[in-house]
Computed example of a mutant assay.
Amino acid sequence: MTPTLLLVAHGSRDPRFGDTARRVRSVVARRLPCVDVRLGFLDLDTPSVAAQLAALRGECVVVPLLLAPGYHSEVDLPALVAEHRRASVTTTQVVGSYRLTDALADRLDEAGAQPGDGIVVTAVGSTNPTAAHVVRRRAIELSTRLHRPVDVVFATKLGTEDIMLRNAIRRLRTAGAERIALSPYFLSAGLLTERVETALDRLVSDAVVAGPIGTHPVLVDAVVDSYRRACADAAVDMDSAAS
């Protein structure tokens, strides 16, 4: 029996996030027409991950639609899987473990970014140092790909009077940026992306704002690759156990 694919998203009170996650599920389902592709939310939206796990039968591959590792991937999700005692559930790495740099570059191009722009990559922010490292690695990759200065600002850590964003803009200007472009390392637009956009508008008048990653093919590829790799690994394990 083909394992079910359960996409796990963070969840938000902003309906745009849920809409985006559901669009991702639909695109993935079209890429995997013989697979039952489901979606569950860790918080603030339905169906919940717990409800989806309780309803599942047979084997399941869980793919977290999270752009960096953190509390939700390392604590919340494993606890939910363990609570439902489903030994047939395989959880993959978060999709942010893949290089999503192409998606960021394409979204900037769609927004009209130019070679003279300095880029601010913005992400949610986390107390997990690995999460910050992943975001900064994406920024380095983006700078290498586009040959432009790139800085990082976390949406939940803008500081008093947006000092962190002010400093990032100052560094980009010093590096030769003629204009500032904002690159959201987010699955969806929402309150946090708007917080950074609003702060940026207060500081500069001609900024370019790219769209979030959304259903970009690179993200869909990351989900599909994660699922297929998990299925292949499970098949190898079963063969080894039978031999």
Rank of each mutant, 00 (worst) to 15 (best):
Met1Glu: 09
Pro3Asp: 14
Gly11Ile: 12
Gly11Asn: 07
Ser12Val: 06
Pro15Ser: 09
Thr20Ala: 13
Ala21Asp: 08
Arg22Lys: 04
Ser26His: 11
Pro33Thr: 12
Cys34Ala: 14
Val35Ala: 13
Val37Tyr: 10
Gly40Cys: 07
Leu44Met: 06
Leu53Arg: 02
Gly58Val: 03
Val61Leu: 10
Val62Ile: 15
Leu65His: 13
Leu66Trp: 07
Gly70Leu: 06
Ser73Pro: 14
Leu77Gly: 08
Leu80Lys: 01
Gln93Tyr: 11
Gln93Gly: 14
Ser97Val: 10
Tyr98Asn: 14
Tyr98Thr: 15
Arg99Val: 00
Leu100Ile: 00
Thr101Ser: 14
Leu104Met: 11
Ala111Asn: 00
Ala113Ser: 09
Val121Asp: 02
Thr122Phe: 05
Ala123Arg: 00
Ala139Gly: 04
Ile140Trp: 11
Arg145Glu: 15
His147Glu: 15
Pro149Ser: 05
Phe154Ala: 09
Lys157Tyr: 02
Gly159Arg: 01
Thr160Trp: 01
Glu161Ala: 05
Ile169Cys: 02
Ile169Pro: 06
Ile169Phe: 03
Arg170Ile: 07
Ala177Phe: 06
Arg179Gly: 12
Leu182Asn: 05
Ser183Asp: 04
Tyr185Trp: 03
Leu187Lys: 05
Ala189Glu: 07
Leu192Ala: 01
Leu203Tyr: 09
Asp206Trp: 09
Val208Glu: 01
Val209His: 02
Val209Ser: 01
Thr215Met: 08
Val218Ile: 10
Val218Met: 12
Ala230Lys: 10
Ala234Phe: 06
Met238Val: 14
Ser243Pro: 06
